[in-house]
C-alpha cells in the first residue's frame, strides 16, 4: 500500500510524475482501495453534495438552530449584513465566513455534514470551497478535485500527528482543516505544489496551540466561529503563498510541532469541556442550564 509519509514526498511525487495533487490522490486511492476510479469519483461527488446541502440549509430561511439554543441563525445574520452593509473585511471573506458558520450550525443542530477532517471542523473546507466556486467560477470537476487535494494533505497530517480534539486540541481539527483548505485553494488558483505546501505550513503555523474547550462539551461554542477563522486563515495563507511568501519552517516540521504541542496539552484543554472557555463562569452556567447539576465520575 502506497501512502505518502510526508508533505515533502507528496510534493516530490507530483513533480516527478508531472500530475496534479488531486490526480495523485485519486491514483493512490484506486491502487489502495481496490475500488474503481468511477466509484471513487462518485463517492467524492456524494461528499461534495452533502457539503453543499449543509451550506444551503444553514444559509436559508431562519437558518439552523441547535436544541440547546447555544448556536444557530448567525449565518443568516451575516447574509443580511452582507446584503445591507459595506463590510470591513470584504464580501469575499464574509462569503467564506457565512459558508463556514452555516455548515457548523447545521452540525450543532445534529444535521447532516461531511467531516473534513472532522465534524467539529466541517465548516472550514466548505467555507473556502463554495466561496471560491463563485469567485473563480469553478467547475464541478474542479470542486471534486479540490477535495481530493485537501484529502491528500489531510492524510499526511492525520497519519503523522492527529486530527482529534481529544488528542491534539482544536489545532488538530480546525488547524488541520485550515491547512488542507489553504493547500487546495492554491492548487485551484494555479499555484505550484510547493506553494500548496507553503500555504499549509503558514495556515497551520497560525493556529498552533489552539485548544479544544467546548462549552458543556458541546460542539457549538466556540467551535462554530473557530471554523470562520479556519476558513479565512486558509484564504490569507493561500494568498500569501501565491504571492511567493514562505513559512521558512517546512510544512512537515509544522505538522511535527503540532503533534508535540498536542501531546503537551493538558487534558483539560483536549475536548473534556473542563478548561478554557468551558471553565469560564458563563460557560459553567450554560452547562448547568443544559445538563443540570454536574454528576461526579464514579
Amino acid at each position: 500500500m502506497q501512502i505518502y509519509a510526508t508533505i515533502a514526498e507528496l510534493v516530490a511525487a507530483v513533480t516527478a510524475e508531472d500530475v496534479s495533487l488531486s490526480e495523485l490522490m485519486i491514483r493512490q486511492e484506486v491502487a489502495n482501495s481496490g475500488s474503481s476510479r468511477a466509484d471513487i469519483w462518485a463517492a467524492m461527488e456524494h461528499n461534495l453534495d452533502a457539503m453543499a446541502a449543509a451550506v444551503k440549509r444553514g444559509s436559508t430561511g431562519a437558518g439552523a438552530f441547535s436544541k440547546t439554543g447555544l448556536t444557530g441563525g448567525e449565518a443568516i445574520k451575516l447574509k443580511h449584513y452582507r446584503a445591507t452593509h459595506q463590510s470591513l473585511s470584504g464580501d469575499t471573506m464574509l462569503a467564506a465566513v457565512q459558508n463556514a458558520i452555516a455548515t457548523n450550525e447545521v452540525n450543532a443542530a445534529m444535521g447532516v455534514v461531511c467531516a473534513t477532517p472532522t465534524a467539529g471542523a466541517s465548516g472550514t473546507l466548505p467555507g473556502v470551497l463554495f466561496m471560491l466556486q463563485e469567485r473563480l467560477k469553478m467547475s464541478r470537476e474542479q470542486m471534486v478535485r479540490f477535495l481530493f487535494t485537501a484529502g491528500a494533505f489531510g492524510m499526511v497530517i492525520a497519519n503523522n500527528a492527529m486530527i482529534a480534539g481529544a488528542t491534539g486540541g482544536c489545532q488538530a481539527e480546525v488547524g488541520s482543516a485550515s491547512g488542507m483548505a489553504a493547500a487546495a485553494a492554491v492548487e485551484i488558483a494555479g499555484g505550484t505544489p510547493a506553494q500548496s505546501a507553503e500555504a499549509l505550513a503558514m495556515a497551520l503555523s497560525n493556529l498552533l496551540g489552539l485548544v479544544c474547550d467546548p462549552i458543556a462539551g458541546l460542539v457549538e461554542l466556540p467551535c462554530v466561529k473557530r471554523n470562520a477563522i479556519g476558513a479565512t486563515n486558509a484564504l490569507v495563507a493561500a494568498d500569501m503563498a501565491l504571492a511567493g511568501l514562505t513559512n521558512k519552517i517546512p510544512a512537515d516540521e509544522v505538522v511535527g510541532a503540532m503533534k508535540k504541542i498536542g501531546e503537551d496539552m493538558p487534558q483539560s484543554l483536549r475536548e473534556t469541556g473542563q478548561g478554557g472557555l468551558a471553565a469560564t463562569p458563563t460557560g459553567i452556567k450554560m452547562k448547568l442550564r443544559i445538563f443540570g447539576q454536574d454528576r461526579n465520575l464514579e
Partner: peptide
C-alpha cells in the same frame, strides 16, 4: 488513515466525528 475518505468524510449526523 488509509483512504482519502477517512479525511473527506464520512457524511454523518452531527455534532462530532469522533
Amino acid at each position: 488513515y488509509k483512504s482519502v475518505f477517512d479525511i473527506i468524510g464520512p457524511v454523518m449526523i452531527g455534532p462530532s466525528s469522533s
